[in-house]
Write a protein that binds this DNA or RNA. Sequence first.
DNA 1: GGTATTCTAGAATATTACCTCTAATAAGGG
DNA 2: CCCTTATTAGAGGTAATATTCTAGAATACC
Lengths: 189, 189
Amino acid sequence: MGRPAKFSRDQILDAALAIAAEDGLGAATMTAIAARLGAPTGSLYHRFGSHDLLLAALWIRTVRSFQGGFVEALVAGDAEMAALHTPRWCRRHPAQAALLLLHRRQELAARWPAELGEDLDLLNTQISDALNSFASRHPGVDHERLIFATVDVPYGAVRRYLLEGRPPPPLVDEMVIAACRAVLPLGEA
Amino acid sequence: MGRPAKFSRDQILDAALAIAAEDGLGAATMTAIAARLGAPTGSLYHRFGSHDLLLAALWIRTVRSFQGGFVEALVAGDAEMAALHTPRWCRRHPAQAALLLLHRRQELAARWPAELGEDLDLLNTQISDALNSFASRHPGVDHERLIFATVDVPYGAVRRYLLEGRPPPPLVDEMVIAACRAVLPLGEA
DNA sequence: GGTATTCTAGAATATTACCTCTAATAAGGG
DNA sequence: CCCTTATTAGAGGTAATATTCTAGAATACC
């Protein structure tokens, strides 16, 4: 009931993402997002109460998009698959990857909106649980080592290519696996 | 001759660095830097023509501080020492590390000041040369693998701790070395 | 067809931050 | 002791940006 929306939440977030990917996060001002969409700024404020809320929503949407496959691989008990998820996801979603991996949550919004705190907590809990669950099922695997192999190394490997705006080459996957096996005491468990 | 300076270039850069480390790069406005130093904004503009120039100078100073030891290790032909340089340097210079490793040059200044272009080029050349020189002296070592082992992996390993504001633990060094040996075909060459 | 509801539309306002400009201040040289 | 020079000092201009506000448009339900 009521007038149908001409600009959806996702459309607005997509516009913000595109601008952030092209010209940096600082360029994603309300005016710029509205202009790219051909919308007046009022429409943005109708959906997102503030600039901070808009960017925070974009951040959460991006984290959720990334996290799914990662947690899935961990739950399936496949650490190497989890490690490979990062380069693979980056190839499929370059703009989102640039946002997620080249920025900190802190710099998105000066003050993180309280109403989105729970959403983020949920995501954090989800990933913590997956890591803990994996570690507990693999007695030799230290928690720190697991994060190093499945998060830190893939992250570092991918970052340089994101900065240059090109997809990570296949060699990245090979080296990520090599590092994985060097640090985690499991051949194919 | 003339009145002696009350606020030196380095003092100003230190203030900017401290603010960036504590509250993020966006908080390092001219007013904030001046306030932290107890100086008027005019003094900052007397030494640095613009906000961009100030941040660019800070960036260059930081890169130079980091790069010295890294290049040195590479020139000495010790890849593992080069890889360990990152975590070690982070422990000694936490604020500088947070700036250098958690930000891109691009987001410091929208337009990089032309007059500092050469300074940056020099630093980039220096590191390129060191990497090339090392690779040419070690026939089995691929360029991409060398960067992965000495730059990307240490970078990823250290990042999480920088975000949390604490120094990388010793385990990081151990894992960085393990990854190094898994990827580079040299035992102790 | 009327009415409630949701949204677009964009002008106007407030805030914020960069930057400039003029005067005052503090040393050193003659 | 005066004059030159480099610097402090900070008020105020300007531009960009977030935000608000009022009016109007489009749809669904009755």
